[in-house]
Each structure stands twice: as C-alpha cells, then as structure tokens.
Amino acid sequence: MSRLVLWNIDLTLVDVSIVAREAYAEAFHKVTGRPLVKLSQHNGRPDSEIVYEMLAINGIVADDDHLPRFLDALAEAFAARRKRLPKDGRMMAGARDALKAVARLDGVVQSVLTGTIRSNAVHKLTAFGLDKHVDFEIGGYGEEVYPKATLLQVAQGRARQKYGGIFDGGNTVMIGDSARDVQAARIAGAAMIGVASGRSLPAELHEAGADVVLPDLSNASEVVAAVAGLTSPARKAG
C-alpha cells in the first residue's frame, strides 16, 4: 500500500526562529532600503503571505516585483546563516526518531508541507540531520502561491507522478503544530496529526479537527501508530 506523510517544519520538527528573524530583517532592508521595524506573526502561514503583510505593516506599497525579490533575498540571507542553525536553533523533541520510525512503515513516502520556501526548508532539516527520510521534490513550499489545502493536493499530485500509485485523502497524513495546518488538512480531505509543540494548544488542535493530538514527537511509537491507523485500508474504505 501507499502512504504519504507530509510534515510541517517550524515548531514541529525544528525551531530556528532567531535565525529566521535575522534573515527576514536583512531581506527587508535589501529590498526596501529601510530597516525592518514591525514583525508579522507567522502562525503557520506561508512566506509569500508573510512578506506581503510585512511590507504593508511597515508602510511599503508592494508591487509585482517585491515578492520575487524579497524571496530571493530571504533565501540568500538564510543560506548565509545556515551554519548557525544547530547552535542558535533546536530540533524539536523526538523529531529524528519519529522520522526514522515512520520511514519503516510499508509504502511510506515522507515530504514536507511548509510555509517556508524550499531552499530554506532544505537548510533547516539538513542542519539537524533530518533530511535523510524526506523527499523534498514532492513537497509544498512557501514560494508557491496556493492556499495550504491546495498545496497539499499539489504535493499528492507530485507523489503520484514520481512514485505511481494512488495518493489521496485516504492515505495522506499531515503532521503539524498549528490550527492552520489542521484546517488545511481537513479542507483537502487528508488525515491530521496535531502536535502541541508550537503555538496552538491541544484543545485548539482538537477543536480545529485534528484526528490525533500528541503533546510532541518524543514517543515515536505513538507517532507511528497514529500514521498507520490513519492510512489503514479500513479508513480508506470508509
């Protein structure tokens, strides 16, 4: 059987917020010529959306060139700081063991569904040795201007194209820490494992519609059991 597991990155697998804020500030200054004064909240949103809000709240009227220029500058600024990620960031509890354990399930393909642009997503996971079991080619990223639910379906299409077989709502699981992640999975018809390691409380993840809510990833057996249960033939038939 086929299984597609899509991981959120920030506050689910890693926390590199200090480095990310610095990269955003540098990119903002490079593109606008002004210092970044006001920060926008990420809260599970894609970089493309964050950039527009950041420009607006800092008094910049965005034109068609701002987004691609900002994302290029963000990629450059983040790459320049990638060696600092293990020192100034952290891997979330249990992340490595959870990825390894899920990789042992029959027919599983793991990738990411993240608001982070692709180059930065690769840096974030590689810095902590979390890239081994992740196929970045089929993931969904923050430079792709789609709602997250649509991006999840795009990732399913990429998985089908690369691996063949069927990847749909019956065998796709998203794992993330925010209510926005849960909502995206629900809209796309995928199963959802909420991890209360970010800004959303367990009750918020339950209320948003998560199928399973875990306090963190520290119990790899629980993560595997949840993924296996949510991608079982019985669930798909139902």
Rank of each mutant, 00 (worst) to 15 (best):
V145R: 14
G140Q: 00
L85N: 13
H133D: 11
K100F: 13
P147F: 06
V112K: 01
G89W: 02
A80N: 12
L113Y: 01
S119G: 14
E76L: 09
S119Q: 15
A77D: 07
G140Y: 07
K124H: 12
L99N: 05
L85R: 13
E143P: 04
R90Q: 07
G94C: 07
L85M: 14
V122H: 14
T150C: 07
G142M: 01
D106M: 00
G107W: 10
R81K: 07
D88N: 08
A93P: 01
V109A: 00
A103I: 10
T126C: 12
R82A: 14
G139I: 11
L113R: 13
E137P: 02
L74F: 15
P86L: 11
D131S: 10
H133C: 08
F136Q: 07
H133Q: 15
A101K: 04
E144K: 13
H123A: 07
D135K: 06
V145K: 12
S119V: 03
A127E: 03
A80H: 12
A127W: 01
T114D: 06
V145P: 14
V145W: 10
S111C: 08
P147S: 11
F78A: 00
G129V: 05
L113S: 04
Y141V: 09
A98R: 07
A75V: 03
V109H: 01
Y141S: 06
